[in-house]
Amino acid sequence: MIDFLYGAAALLLLLTGLGLARMMWGPAPADRMMAAQLLGTGGGAIALLIATASGITAIIDIALVLALLAAFAAVALTLGEPGTKQPDGQANP
């Protein structure tokens, strides 16, 4: 059982990790924010799986905080000027 839960956590990490590709491809900030959102909830789920597998219940609190603040980045995004690309002159390779 424990191995199953750890395995599930690892697999979930890979799955949500794939979402990172969407963050890089974009193209809109909304797309990137969705990737962050997926990583937030996925991270919460991973924390729950690890908490159950390891028996360290305190790890559930991490999922709790992640879930509580999951919508925060999306809310903060709406603070921005929508539609204005803001290149800051940075063009590193």
């Binding site: 990137r32 962050a36 924390a47 790890i59 992640l66 980045a73 803001q86 290149p87």
Partner: peptide, 28 residues
Amino acid sequence: VWTVAVRDRRDAVIGFIVVGLLLSLAWV
């Protein structure tokens, strides 16, 4: 790497938030 390399500054912030989320798993 993406956070540092991306052109748009808001994208960089989103990248940084993602790094933070992943780091909290690393701390676990």
